[in-house]
């Protein structure tokens, strides 16, 4: 085992353990903070796989923006310190089944798709910004643009939903 592998295993364990804690802890805000740990450990894994850009973008977007948004939302509604007894869901078993099923499917698909493929991490250029950028804009440009359109649609939808003053005109026109 190389040094990188030695670090990779505990990092993966941290990511897994903290993700389990995210869903099992009965303290609402701490769940979000465990998510930070999980995402950070995941970024560490990316880093060890020489995917430097993806690792930093992961921290920037997920830890820096998504979790902050999450925390903001939690604090805006309710953010009790300590245990919340009503946080447990009755659908525990169903959720577990769905989660395990999804994980199983994903692992099967990934393993099936890349069974023999391997990337040489030797000089660390496999995950550099240049390689990722070239791949993204040469070979995967269509999915990338489709994702942009999807995000744009989501943005427009959010604006339409949140702005009351641009809703449909009242049908009878009597009172406005």
């Amino acid at each position: 085992m190389t040094g990188a592998e030695l670090v990779f295993v505990p990092l993966g364990a941290v990511a897994l353990g903290s993700s389990v804690l995210v869903v099992t802890t009965d303290q609402l805000v701490r769940a979000a903070l465990w998510l930070v740990v999980a995402l950070g450990a995941l970024a560490g894994c990316f880093l060890l796989l020489a995917a430097e850009l993806v690792a930093w973008v992961q921290v920037l977007i997920y830890v820096g923006a998504v979790v902050v948004l999450l925390l903001f939302g939690i604090m805006l509604t309710r953010a009790p310190i300590g245990r919340s007894v009503d946080l447990d869901s009755g659908n525990r078993v169903a959720a577990l089944v769905v989660a395990l099923g999804t994980a199983g499917t994903l692992v099967t698909v990934v393993v099936g798709g890349f069974r023999t493929a391997s990337i040489d991490l030797g000089d660390g250029s496999a995950g550099s910004a240049g390689t990722v950028g070239a791949g993204l804009f040469r070979y995967w440009v269509l999915p990338f643009e489709l994702l942009s359109v999807l995000l744009l649609a989501a943005l427009v939808g959010a604006i339409v939903l949140s702005r009351r003053d641009i809703g449909p005109r009242a049908r009878d026109g009597g009172e406005d």
Binding site: E52, W56, V63, G64, V68, S128, A129
Partner: peptide, 19 residues
């Protein structure tokens, strides 16, 4: 190699401390 993104990413973590 991705120093700027490293800096921006880590800086945004710091704000988490305040929250």
């Amino acid at each position: 190699p991705a120093g700027l993104f490293f800096a921006l990413a880590v800086l945004s973590v710091s704000v988490l401390g305040s929250i």
